[in-house]
């Protein structure tokens, strides 16, 4: 079986020389293509740190992370930036769109960094925003969009680079029920129809219910890893 993500004996220790804090402690995790996986656990259990390590935003203290067979923990910072650009999509809790760009420009921006031609960028951005139900909001800036709409733009932005998988850190934490439902439907649809792999950290039971695999972390260790059948 080939995995999109393979993490072996992953450990992240903060303050190793003073009072060591094991944010992630000897985690082994494999994720196959097309998974819809939730990382759950109480606050401080290491969900976000694990996502950051998998996403190449942080380097582990020990262990390694392979994305499609490539060990990203050995990469230089610049190579890692390029690798992230080509392989990983991010969705953040606070949306984090570029406030001075419109919805479509935010989506285009990632493709610009991939040096795609203008016409292709514009066309793809429109398609993606249509896919997340925002075809009527192309020229609105983030401040003119609701939280749910901003998060959908963030999903479109994450998809724009055609990544191998999307990491979403508490994507519904700032959303109301309707927006959460809407976003989950979009993510589930993308997962089902386009086989897009999603890994997200969450506390939200509605998100957990949608996941097909639930990995539970406590004190930086995986305490359970369960596959579940979706209710809908």
């Amino acid at each position: 079986m080939s995995y999109v993500i393979e993490a072996h004996n992953l450990t992240k220790i903060y303050n190793p020389k003073t009072i060591p804090v094991y944010a992630v402690n000897g985690v082994d995790l494999q994720v196959e293509e097309g998974e819809f996986t939730a990382l759950v656990g109480p606050s401080g259990s290491g969900k976000t740190t694990l996502l950051n390590l998998i996403g190449g935003l942080d380097y582990p203290t020990t262990g390694d992370v392979k994305i499609a067979g490539v060990d990203i923990t050995k990469m230089s910072e610049n190579k890692l930036i390029d690798f992230r650009l080509q392989n990983i999509g991010f969705v953040f809790q606070a949306y984090n769109l570029i406030p001075v760009l419109t919805a479509s420009e935010n989506v285009e921006f990632v493709m610009l960094m991939q040096k795609k031609p203008k016409r292709e960028r514009e066309q793809h951005a429109i398609e993606l925003l249509k896919e997340v139900g925002l075809s009527d909001r192309l020229n609105n800036r983030p401040t003119e969009l609701s939280g749910g709409q901003q998060q959908r733009v963030a999903v479109a932005r994450a998809l724009a680079s055609k990544p191998r998988f999307i990491l979403a850190d508490e994507p519904t934490a700032n959303l109301d029920s309707k927006s959460t439902e809407n976003l989950l439907d979009i993510m589930a649809k993308l997962n089902k129809e386009d086989k897009m792999t999603f890994i997200f950290s969450t506390h939200d039971q509605r998100v957990i219910d949608k996941a097909r695999r639930v990995v539970t972390l406590v004190d930086g260790k995986i305490v359970s890893d369960e596959k579940q059948t979706q209710s809908s």
């Binding site: 996403g55 570029i98 960094m113």
Partner: peptide
């Protein structure tokens, strides 16, 4: 930080 995370070179 976000821009660098999503792939913008420094």
């Amino acid at each position: 930080g976000i821009l660098i995370a999503v792939g913008m070179r420094k």
